[in-house]
Simulated assay, not measured.
Amino acid sequence: MIPTLPGITTVAQTITLALSPIFMLTAIGQLLNVLAGRLSRVIDRVRALEQLHPRSTGPEHDRHIWELRLLDRRISIINASLFLAVSSAVMTSLVVVSLFVATLGKLHFASIVAIAFILAMILLIASLVSFMFEVRLSLRAIHVRKEYLDG
């Protein structure tokens, strides 16, 4: 018996099924863009503070140390969020590939595809939660200090 290739209709249906994960990849790409931008800005701020730190004294010196610690924590959180978002993108890509492999090979591993998609979503959720935590943490450094508001 000669194996038959799937018809154009089957491939078109698979492409339709793959569109949602592909849109998700687009959204993850935008998230990665935002995270990379935030990481860049944090690193720029660290470099600026590292220049000021040796020349500072007293309360200003303490403020620099406090902010450098906060920025170091933010870098760690952004890196974790980036890792989770990239992992989600990889899992989402595997879902798309799995859809086509299953169609072309007439394989039945819907459970594997579903589990991969669920894992991709969990990784994306974890990345977004990390991002939210980093944004909240960044607000601690942005608040106008009381001594400026009183005078």
Results as ranks from 00 to 15, higher is better:
Leu71Gln: 02
Ile15Met: 06
Asp62Ala: 11
Ala120Trp: 02
Ala114Asp: 03
Ile118Val: 05
Gly151Ser: 14
Ser76Leu: 11
Phe23Met: 13
Arg63Gly: 04
Ser81Thr: 04
Ala116Gly: 04
Phe100Gln: 02
Tyr148Gly: 02
Val42Asp: 06
Ala126Asp: 04
Ile122Asn: 01
Ile8Arg: 12
Leu119Asp: 04
Leu32Thr: 12
Leu107Arg: 09
Ser130Cys: 12
Ile142Pro: 05
Ala120Met: 05
Val97Phe: 12
Val144Arg: 02
Ala18Met: 00
Asp150Glu: 14
Ser93Arg: 10
Ala85Leu: 05
Leu124Asp: 01
Leu128Gly: 01
Met1Gln: 06
Leu68Tyr: 09
Ala126Glu: 07
Gly105Val: 03
Ile2Asp: 11
Thr92Ala: 05
Arg38Tyr: 01
Ser87Thr: 13
Ser20Gln: 10
Thr14Gln: 09
Ile78Ala: 02
Arg41Asp: 01
Gln13Tyr: 11
Ala120His: 01
Ile75Gln: 00
Leu84Ile: 04
Ile115Gln: 02
Arg145Gly: 12
Ile115His: 00
Phe117Asn: 04
His53Arg: 12
Leu119Lys: 02
Tyr148His: 10
Ser93Gly: 15
Ala36Glu: 05
Phe117Met: 11
Gln51His: 15
Ile2Tyr: 03
Ser127Asp: 12
Gln51Asn: 11
Glu50Asn: 14
Asn79Val: 01
Ile22Leu: 14
Ala85His: 06
Ser56Ile: 05
Thr57Ala: 15
Leu149His: 11
Leu124Gln: 09
Ile78Glu: 06
Thr92Lys: 04
Thr26Tyr: 07
Val135Leu: 08
Asp150Asn: 15
Val34Phe: 15
His143Thr: 08
Thr92Gln: 05
Leu82Asp: 06
Val34Thr: 14
Arg63Val: 04
Asn79Gly: 12
Leu137Ser: 07
Thr4Met: 05
Ser130Asn: 09
Leu123Pro: 00
Val34Ala: 15
Trp66Ser: 09
Ile122Gln: 02
Leu68Ile: 11
Gly37Lys: 10
Ala48Val: 15
Leu5Ser: 13
Ser87Tyr: 04
Ser111Leu: 04
Val42Gly: 03
Ser81Pro: 08
